[in-house]
Design a protein around this nucleic acid. Structure first.
Lengths: 245, 245
DNA sequence: CGCCATACATAACGTATGTTGTTCGGGACA
DNA sequence: TGTCCCGAACAACATACGTTATGTATGGCG
């Protein structure tokens, strides 16, 4: 829940009353273990589920049975849009690690949002950023070679973790397996492995034991051709990210 | 403008007053010719631009100078989200044909939307569908081989044109060049040409003189592994699409 | 300590797709 | 009617990435 408030607050300033109101919208809390399905295509959920701890992903199954991850969900991310309509999902959501979920009451939440408030703006921003990320992923998988693609994903994830205050210096908890990364990037697990080794050999990052360490942030950014514009950070993170080098 | 109302009305029922109110939100109208830039990355637009005639695209430039189209915009599609925040674009928008644009006043539009109205729901749906399309594109470019990818795109575009009432039987106006298609699908122009020829040889479609003709809709759908679930048509188009075979 | 499951690494080989360059045909325009 | 030019077609070649197969760590657990 605090990750969620952190994230919304990052994009638009929330008042104390709004923060309290959000807590009042909590309907229930759940735990899921790694690999479990959170929601399936076709389902309509009445509430709004928030990832409060752990990572999850949205994915689609392809004609050949392989899965493509179309979005990674970090703490603070929502499973559904905060919108008046409860739309049936067109994809599945799966836990990539053990997960804590907080379910908000959709009606209550909608009633709490007053126009021109920080909350209203923050939710709008969050939705826009989610979409921007998909656009950047589209560019990533179509135009960048494997290693660059991977580097770009790592940059994005490090930035997103910084936004919700989950980085420690140049390190962060990183529950993705190589298979999950390959499914995100449209690569085979083998080729992802090769690419990861390349980044390691170049002394750019190290990924091991569920920990991602950024060895040389400026060079990693250059290698990936990364810019955090599409995350709409507004430069608010430059200090945190400099720490990472 | 009518395409826009058509589209919103397809997803949620608009009252006569709401339709009239939308007309009142019109701020100005513009013409653009093919190739012109509608909006550039970093720009914030105060109004909401609607494509009323012609096609446009959102695209991003890659490190090697090539362009990736991340969304195709048909009549009725919006350039910006109808949200309280005017967010700087993270990509460019370009006219793929001669274009007519209608600009709505954001503040007026927002004030016209009452909660739990058809308009409110329709706009929410439209935004959800835009996002779903991106998710499907992500699957398309990463997991499907070239010809299947192309077939899938053609199915999608035919469905979207049917939604706004711009198909004639098994035909539709189709302003995309092969280069534009290749930029949408993450293929080289040459390989797109090969794929298009394959679909033609298989007697599935014919694309010529800016017209797309569906020769065999059921087989095209099967070949593409297409389902319009992600467009949330709710089966409302089955009649129109049967016409296409 | 030994068993097993899972994740990660490496190699050999095949193939889908990209690249370069050339040719062709049909509108636009003089 | 001829000329120009853009979009489309085609061929020869290059390569990045996928596939299959097998080997190596690591950690949980009785």
């Amino acid at each position: 829940m605090y990750s969620f408030i952190n994230k919304i607050n990052f994009y638009a300033c929330l008042s104390q009353t709004e923060k309290a109101a959000l807590h009042d919208c909590v309907d229930s809390k759940h735990h899921l273990s790694r690999g479990q399905t959170l929601a399936s295509a076709g389902e309509k959920t009445d509430g709004i589920d928030i990832v409060t701890d752990g990572w999850a992903c949205r994915f689609k199954r392809a004609h050949d049975g392989s899965d493509q991850i179309i979005a990674l969900m970090l703490p603070g991310d929502q499973c559904e849009d905060v919108s008046p309509v409860a739309c049936p999902l067109d994809h599945d959501i799966r836990a990539l690690s053990d997960l804590r979920i907080t379910r908000l009451d959709r009606r209550k939440l909608l009633s709490v949002i007053s126009p021109d408030s920080g909350l209203s703006d923050g939710l709008a921003w969050s939705s826009i950023v989610d979409r921007s990320i998909m656009g950047e992923w589209l560019l990533n998988v179509t135009r960048r070679p494997a290693a660059m693609r991977l580097a770009h994903l790592l940059c994005e994830l490090f930035t997103r973790c910084a936004i919700i205050g989950r980085t420690q210096g140049n390190r962060m908890h990183f529950p993705l397996t190589q298979v999950a990364m390959s499914e995100s990037l449209g690569l085979s697990p083998v080729h992802l492995n090769r690419s990861l080794q390349l980044l390691r050999r170049q002394q750019l990052v190290s990924v091991c034991r569920k920990t991602l360490t950024i060895i040389d942030w400026p060079r990693l950014v250059a290698f990936a051709g990364y810019s955090d514009h599409y995350l709409h950070t507004g430069g608010k993170l430059s200090a945190d990210l400099r720490l990472a080098s």
